[in-house]
């Protein structure tokens, strides 16, 4: 990477374009994706159907993590009851078999749900790199509008194609309300 480019990505987080409608940002997102930009992020006040697909949203690891943790929780719950009732302190009350599995199912289920819920929350926060008290986009004065009626599309400076001039031109062709440099 040439020194100049590295400088830019150290100094700049990216170039942000501002739009006033969901249709406009969808068009813009399509356009910059076609141009080949990959490190693109959108900030919108409402969920826009199809936007994350255009931006190349991939399936996350969360379902796999949650499934593993749920299996560990359920297996652990069942093992705990089985160990206590069959191995550690076998004590027959009521004439059922020692490994009285139907009676173990509720705890097994609850432990599976508990582990799934907790792991989903933790995995979501970790994969989103949260909690994150500061984000470069906050440097933009107009960014408070992103939670009201403005739609922001930011091409990040670590994109392989990022070039201050060319990227600006690419964003200009989709007629945003404004283009701003986002400092680090």
């Amino acid at each position: 990477m040439p020194a100049e480019v590295r400088d830019i990505s150290k100094r700049l987080f990216g170039l942000a374009a501002e739009f006033d409608s969901p249709e406009a940002i969808l068009e813009a997102a399509k356009h910059v994706r076609v141009q080949g930009y990959r490190h693109v992020e959108a900030y919108t006040p409402i969920p826009i159907d199809g936007l994350s697909e255009i931006l190349g949203f991939r399936r996350t690891w969360i379902p796999a993590i949650v499934l593993c943790c749920a299996a560990i929780g359920a297996g652990g719950g069942f093992f705990m009851e089985w160990f206590a009732n069959v191995v550690h302190l076998p004590w027959n009350i009521g004439g059922r078999p020692m490994n009285s599995w139907p009676a173990f199912i509720p705890i097994t289920f609850e432990m599976g749900i508990l582990f799934a819920g907790v792991s989903a929350t933790i995995a979501m926060l970790a994969l989103n790199k949260l909690p994150q008290p500061y984000h470069p986009m906050f440097r933009l004065d107009s960014f408070t509008e992103a939670s009201r009626n403005r739609f922001f599309l930011c091409i990040e400076s670590d994109d392989p194609l990022f070039d201050l001039e060319k990227t600006r031109q690419a964003l200009e062709t989709v007629h945003p309300l404004a283009i701003s440099e986002v400092p680090r």
Binding site: G94, G95, R96, S100, P102, A103, I105, P106
Partner: peptide
């Protein structure tokens, strides 16, 4: 399962 469990526990 709830039906089985209640009957199983009652025995």
């Amino acid at each position: 399962f709830a039906q089985l469990l209640v009957i199983w526990m009652g025995n």
